[in-house]
Design a protein around this nucleic acid. Structure first.
Lengths: 247, 247
DNA sequence: ATAGTTAGCGTATTTTATACGTTAACTTTG
DNA sequence: CAAAGTTAACGTATAAAATACGCTAACTAT
């Protein structure tokens, strides 16, 4: 069911910045869109997964619904990180016409809630077959996008970096079992810097929510590393105890 | 000019949580409202300064306009900190009727952008004469409020505490010149804890944006303290240099 | 067998946080 | 007017956290 077939609220939308990680690259999930360019010709570009909310829909639910409709992804961690309300954030006439033609309404101005999300690409690969308009694009190779979606991605990345420093969200992007080195690479790529492997190990293992498994890497041309898993319960518990006073 | 006399956007509003500080108490700015209770009788309660946005209005500008209209306060630091979109966040029939009667429209559901702000009460006292429906209420004595405004204040306070730990926003609540002890008291009241005066002094003076003035306290029954001022330029400069990597 | 690679442990040094001692400079009180 | 009470402002000693870097272990590729 498309938004245009429901009673939509044409003033408010949600947009999801979904980050993924594979082959040592940070990626973002984009939807291919068909639109008419200035000369009226059919053209294609990309946009974030997003939609108008419906009349009585909760924003968070609208975000997860949208993501599921456009990509088949369900029950994914989604967090609102920004709210964009400049009157002219949609300025291209081609974008306005696209909105009008897809909704059948005359759209004046849209305020949008931006959500960000992290998923492990390899694990959810299969589900993606559901809709092949969605694709993973390397963050460094994101082209010009519809609307102000490129800026939204930029803000989402800033948010991701901030969160990564305070909460152990990196695990969301990795498979269930991973090596410390893989986790470090993830940090290095997201934060765009080099980390000392010995200090990283010390720091990350001090927080005791990383559980070493009995399993080691096999077939690697160096000392094989142990796999670890993330224990969410341990994390949630010690989060409760810590009330966060630095003074 | 009231919102009802303009072309308003009845789906989106702004609400301002304005914190103030005086006589060693953290206060919040509230507007007195007249409404009809369940039995139709006129009653009074309080709400946050807030309003619907108009059709082509920027959210940030709507927030500062609202604050000015309701309190006379101008050019105040305002920052969006949350966006509330639950479909049932306005659930009391008295609130819905109040919205309908003040706007002359039939309001279904309102999504609101919450802003927070800090002001020094003593300095802006005079301007408040402009509108006497606005008053400062001690944060610990906030009564039941209209809509979900009590929850919004709660979230604003959480935000204030978080910000206070990372940015020197405390100065916004103090007069231009202040003693270290006054600043410490402010921290203690906002964070609701005791701080060691010697360590607080060390920590806060290490960041070099506090400038000691030649002036001392007079008439106090103890060793008079030097006054300090906050140098915003120094702060902004060293903020630029620091890119915030903890890893 | 040797070279190349990353894993995983350790140590030494610097920086930052915490706890608390002490004198200085004012007013109030008796 | 001396003594008591108060907070300012500086200092020191200790503990904890961050950083830099050395080294051996365990694997593959040549």
């Amino acid at each position: 069911m498309l938004a245009s077939e429901r009673t939509i609220n044409p003033h408010i939308s949600v947009d999801c910045v979904v980050f993924g990680f594979s082959t040592n690259q940070l990626k973002v999930l984009l939807i291919e869109r068909e639109f008419r360019d200035e000369s009226g010709k059919l053209a294609r570009d990309h946009k974030l997964p997003g939609d108008f909310i419906t009349i009585n829909e909760d924003l968070d639910l609208a975000a997860s619904r949208t993501l599921e409709e456009l990509t088949g992804l369900r029950q994914i961690f989604l967090k609102q990180f920004a709210f964009l309300g400049e009157p002219n954030r949609i300025w291209r006439t081609t974008d306005i016409e696209w909105l009008n033609s897809t909704t059948g309404l005359e759209i004046h101005r849209v305020v949008t809630a931006a959500y960000f999300s992290l998923i492990n690409i390899t694990e959810s690969k299969s589900e993606f077959a559901i809709n092949n308009n969605a694709s993973w694009i390397n963050l460094k190779e994101v082209p010009e996008l519809a609307f102000d979606h490129k800026q939204i991605i930029e803000r989402g990345l800033t948010h991701l970096r901030k969160e990564l420093r305070h909460e152990p969200i990196g695990f969301e992007l990795l498979p269930d079992k991973f090596t410390i080195r893989e986790l470090q690479s993830l940090y290095e790529i997201i934060l765009d810097c080099d980390l000392d492997n010995r200090n990283f190990r010390k720091k990350i293992l001090k927080s005791n929510y990383l559980i070493q498994l009995d399993e080691k890497q096999i077939g690697v041309a160096h000392k094989p590393a142990y796999y670890y898993r993330f224990d969410k319960d341990i994390y949630e518990n010690q989060k409760k105890e810590y009330l966060g006073f630095n003074f």
